[in-house]
Design a protein around this nucleic acid. Structure first.
Length: 468
RNA sequence: GGUCCCAUCGUCUAGCGGUUAGGACGCCGGCCUCUCACGCCGGAAGCUCGGGUUCGAUUCCCGGUGGGAUCACCA
């Protein structure tokens, strides 16, 4: 087979939607897997709704997901001469014709058809009139009255549409601009696109596009219509279901690799495997195992997958990924090694980078935010001596390692006849201000000797005097 | 409503005529344990219904039901 050439053609009328990201992903993966090409095309022919901001948001989101393209971005608004040329070809070859019917007249035709119990359609009034180009004229494709057009869909299977059900649809508006179906076909044709994976909401206008290919004497590409992503109530995913834009997930602290993994796995499978790295996805992705039914977006599962991706990455990678989230909280990583130890301690306890950033604050803060209840409960008189002694011993410790630290606490525990739990909680509050944190030893190591000792000494000052 | 698509635990899915119907998320119980997590072990939970075809259907065919998509001079 020839080199696979796929594409992603968003219309810039908003941010990059999760569903769009998924179809982009399928096309990108297929191109990457087969060693083909992936083309980015901006469908901005709706000049009223298209914005520069949306274009930028789409680039930004694709960049974040690390979905790169080999050709483009092409902008349809810069290709009008090409569309006009093809429309002319269709008119010249008798596959299309000028129509002078006004929208009102067409509406009336549809009403009439409906009244007669027929499908509301344009009645073909101008078909044989051989009208010349003129003001307020549109161009329509002459659709065969009989026969059927079959979409050989690689995910849904062959799907047949009766030509009699298809209107002589408009390919050029009265203002001379091309309509969607025409522009898409001309673009895909001229850009050499041979594989189209898109949402199955496009399935119904695929026969129109195939008719256009045929009228142009061209071979249609391979079509595959992937099921849509639904919200938790089975309706189309929208704002009321929560986050729908790619950037929102970035802001939530989702890793791009986890997003990819989740999105692809939603509607595609490779046996029982749930976790995929980006490389595995490229290696294992195939069209054959794309599902045929719509699926609901499940935030919990995304989160769980994100947690696994966080754990699977190195401390260095996560520390780097975390830094913008820390920066947003006014924290700059000054000591990379310490930050990586901090990250390591937080990795198994963070579902998102936002959670991790929040939980890591105590590592970086100069002055701790003490949780009052925690202070009251654990920084009690009986904790004074064990804490003070611990600080002294840590300060004097020859080698600052986990075994040595364990030895110190063993001493303190034995002396005061305490279980580790009794000393760990006060210590935890002293070091973090909270009752929940990573393990004591890993924190001490990540914090370093100096901070550990000073924090314990500061906390001791919060202990009220003994009652009697 | 017409046309088209779809149908396995609550959710994502494996299954491609014979399985104790498998995995994951979530949920419940236990273990581990310095808190919280992670991890580990175990549990509850599913083939939409009705007809065929077949020795045998979750699987193949038809129909019902249900859900979705689409019916523009939007993309």
């Amino acid at each position: 087979m020839d080199t696979v050439i796929t594409r992603f053609p968003p219309s810039p009328t908003g941010y990059l939607h999760i569903g769009g990201a998924r179809t982009a992903l399928f096309n990108w993966l297929w191109a990457r897997k087969t060693g083909g090409k992936f083309v980015l095309r901006i469908e901005d022919t709706d000049e009223v709704r298209s914005t520069k901001e949306s274009v930028d948001a789409i680039f930004e989101s694709l960049k974040w997901l690390e979905i790169d393209w080999d050709e483009g971005p092409f902008f349809q608004t810069q290709r009008y001469p090409i569309y006009r040329e093809y429309i002319q070809k269709l008119v010249d070859s008798g596959h299309a014709y000028y129509c002078s019917c006004t929208p009102e007249e067409v509406d009336a035709m549809r009403e009439e058809a409906k009244a007669n119990g027929k499908r509301p359609m344009y009645n073909g009034k101008c078909r044989e009139l051989n009208l010349e180009s003129g003001k307020n004229m549109v161009v329509r494709l002459r659709v065969p009255d009989n026969g059927a057009t079959v979409v050989e869909d690689v995910v849904k299977g062959p799907t047949s549409f009766q030509n009699s059900e298809i209107d002589d649809f408009i390919i050029q508006r009265s203002d001379g601009s091309p309509t969607y179906n025409l522009a898409v076909v001309v673009d895909d044709l001229t850009m050499g696109i041979n594989t189209i994976l898109r949402g199955d909401d496009h399935l119904v206008n695929t026969p129109k596009q195939i008719l256009l290919y045929k009228a142009l004497g061209a071979e249609p590409p391979i079509f595959g219509h992937v099921p849509m992503v639904l919200g938790h109530d089975k309706s189309r995913l929208s704002k009321r279901h929560g986050a729908t834009s790619v950037e929102e997930y970035r802001d939530l602290g989702i890793l791009p690799d986890a997003m990819l993994n989740y999105l692809v796995r939603l509607g595609w499978s490779h046996g029982d495997q749930e976790f995929f790295t980006r490389e595995e996805l490229i290696e294992k992705f195939d069209i054959e195992h794309i599902g045929r039914s719509a699926s609901m977006f499940d935030m919990d599962k995304l989160m769980a997958l994100n947690a696994k991706h966080i754990q699977a990455k190195s401390n260095e990678e996560i520390a780097e990924a975390l830094s913008p989230y820390l920066a947003a909280r006014g924290i700059e990583i000054k000591n990379p090694e310490a930050a990586q130890l901090a990250v390591e301690s937080l990795k198994p306890r963070s579902k998102t980078l936002v959670e991790m950033a929040e939980a890591s604050l105590f590592y970086f803060q100069e002055t701790l935010d003490f949780d009052e209840k925690a202070v009251k409960k654990f920084l009690k008189p009986q904790a004074l001596e064990p804490l003070t002694e611990s600080a002294d011993l840590i300060e004097a410790l020859a080698d600052f390692t986990e075994p040595a630290l364990e030895e110190i606490f063993k001493q303190v525990m034995e002396k005061h006849e305490l279980k580790f739990g009794k000393i760990a909680q006060p210590l935890r509050v002293a070091l973090t201000g909270k009752t929940v944190s990573p393990g004591i030893f890993e924190m001490i190591l990540a914090l370093g000797r100096e901070k550990t000792v000073s924090r314990i000494r500061e906390a001791v000052k919060l202990i009220p005097p003994a009652a009697e």
